[in-house]
């Protein structure tokens, strides 16, 4: 008899044979998908997020919003513990307005302390978008599974980029600066950032093929210090 490795494809196919989605399943799935799509398209915050996500400016292809593969699909989250908040005057903070820096530092401190109450106070549900379409209050989810916070802390310690948001929001400070990266010509610093985030070269190629830009974990704070969005690839 052929060895198990040789027979595995057939064994697996036979084990799953006969599975068919019925029409009711199709209707339910497509109805939910259309609803989700409509919500994505209509959310007022997306206009600002699209700009902030680094996907819609300059010569880049205009996309309506950043897409992040759902539920951790951006690759493994960093497992290291939270490292120190960048100190005032740190090169990565150059040009960062005080309200923005204060919010950034408060987020990092709350993550380090696993202080979910503090995180809740930093989020205005009326002005915050989480994973673009998955709600405006991620804290209950973070309480259940705090793993995404490690990625959030990691990107907030990296250099930032800026985007012009809506007239109401003004300039949005976006982490990490990888949103500006030319994925076809990464610098050593950008490669190091991707490595820290656990994003492989293959994943970078996928991002480039599918979106033409970095669509990994990212977050944005408006110039007045309002935390406006976060997307971690983790729902």
């Amino acid at each position: 008899m052929p060895n198990l490795e040789t027979r595995m494809p057939d064994l697996l196919r036979r084990a799953a044979a006969g599975l068919r989605a019925d029409e009711a399943f199709e209707r339910r799935t497509l109805r939910r998908a259309r609803r989700r799509r409509a919500r994505n398209a209509s959310a007022a915050a997306l206009a600002a997020i699209a700009l902030a996500a680094g996907l819609a400016l300059g010569a880049r292809t205009v996309l309506t919003a950043g897409l992040t593969p759902a539920d951790g699909a951006n690759g493994p989250l960093p497992t290291s513990s939270v490292s120190p908040t960048p100190s005032p005057g740190s090169p990565v903070d150059e040009g960062l307005p005080t309200p923005v820096r204060q919010t950034r530092d408060a987020i990092l401190a709350a993550i380090e302390a696993r202080d979910f109450g503090a995180l809740e106070t930093l989020i205005d549900p009326d002005r915050f978008a989480y994973n673009f379409s998955d709600g405006h209050d991620p804290v209950p989810e973070w309480r259940r599974d705090p793993a995404p916070l490690e990625a959030l802390a990691a990107i907030l310690r990296m250099p930032f980029a800026t985007r012009e948001g809506t007239p109401e929001l003004g300039t949005i400070y976006v982490w990490p600066s990888l949103v500006d990266a030319d994925l076809t010509n990464l610098t050593d610093e950008e490669r190091a950032m991707l490595t820290e985030l656990g994003i492989s070269e293959r994943e970078v190629r996928r991002m480039l093929e599918a979106f033409g830009a970095y669509v990994g974990p990212r977050t944005g704070i408006a110039q007045d210090g309002t935390w406006v969005f976060s997307t971690l690839g983790g729902d």
């Binding site: 989700r36 292809t61 979106f211």
Partner: peptide, 25 residues
Amino acid sequence: LVQDAFVRVLGRFHDLRSRDAFWWY
């Protein structure tokens, strides 16, 4: 799980530059 996955990925499908990436996601 499959329904949730379709909803999540199809819900953002207008952002996809390449439909070939759909199955990967």
